[in-house]
Amino acid sequence: MAILILIIVFICMEGATWLIHKYVMHGFLWFLHRDHHDHSQDGPLERNDLFFVIFATPAIILLYQGVQRDFNYLFFIGLGITIYGMAYFFVHDIFIHQRAPVLSKVQSPYLRAIRRAHKQHHKHLGKEEGECFGFLWVPLKYFKMYYKKKQ
């Protein structure tokens, strides 16, 4: 049951990420997210990186509460959020934005589609008229660009 909770939470985090990215990060917390689009912040960190703390806090609380209750469902909800956050960091910060110079020449159609959709998202410098707010699942047109059917 614990693994099922973890998997469901991980999957649900994709929808939560889309909603938070579109309506919070591109909404009332745009002042924190803007430098991620316009690169106005100097140095290796952006104000946008504060979202790590914002999103990690509930996961830490859930993990702690779950441990206090003999590793009940709260722990596995927190673990699912944490694992999703780790995936987000590796794919978004390391793979897509190349904060570490690895995986720059991948040929995987799936990873190339994710990178392309994110590039489309970043072509909009303002908070309006954005697109592709997802993370691991993006509009099908980007997958179709790299998964060409053999005829």
Results as ranks from 00 to 15, higher is better:
Y73T: 09
R112M: 14
Q107P: 00
L103I: 08
G134A: 11
F135L: 15
Q120A: 15
R99P: 00
D93L: 04
A113I: 06
Y84S: 05
T82L: 09
L79S: 04
K148M: 04
V138N: 01
Y84K: 07
S108Q: 06
G126N: 10
F90P: 01
L136I: 13
R99W: 07
E129T: 02
A100P: 00
K127M: 13
L140I: 09
S104E: 12
R116H: 14
N72M: 02
F95I: 11
H97F: 10
I81Q: 14
Y142G: 07
L111C: 08
C132H: 10
I96N: 13
S108T: 05
I114P: 03
E131R: 11
K123N: 09
A113K: 07
A113T: 08
R116S: 14
L79E: 02
C132T: 11
G126D: 13
H97A: 10
I77C: 11
L79R: 05
E131G: 10
Y84C: 05
N72S: 12
K119R: 13
P139Y: 07
R115K: 15
Y110F: 14
M86G: 14
R99C: 02
P139W: 05
L125I: 10
I114W: 05
P109R: 11
H118M: 06
S104V: 02
H97L: 08
H124M: 10
H122E: 05
M86A: 13
R99A: 06
G78Q: 01
F90Y: 13
P139D: 06
H124S: 14
R115E: 12
P109K: 11
H92L: 05
I114C: 08
G85Y: 03
L140A: 12
Y110M: 04
L79D: 01
Y88H: 14
I81L: 13
L103D: 01
K144M: 08
S104Y: 01
K123H: 09
C132Q: 07
L125V: 08
F76V: 04
F133A: 06
L111N: 11
V102T: 10
R112T: 00
V106W: 04
V106R: 07
K144I: 00
I96W: 13
L140N: 12
F95A: 08
H92Y: 13
D93W: 09
K123Q: 12
V106N: 09
K144L: 11
R112G: 00
I83V: 15
A100V: 15
Q107F: 04
C132N: 15
Y147C: 04
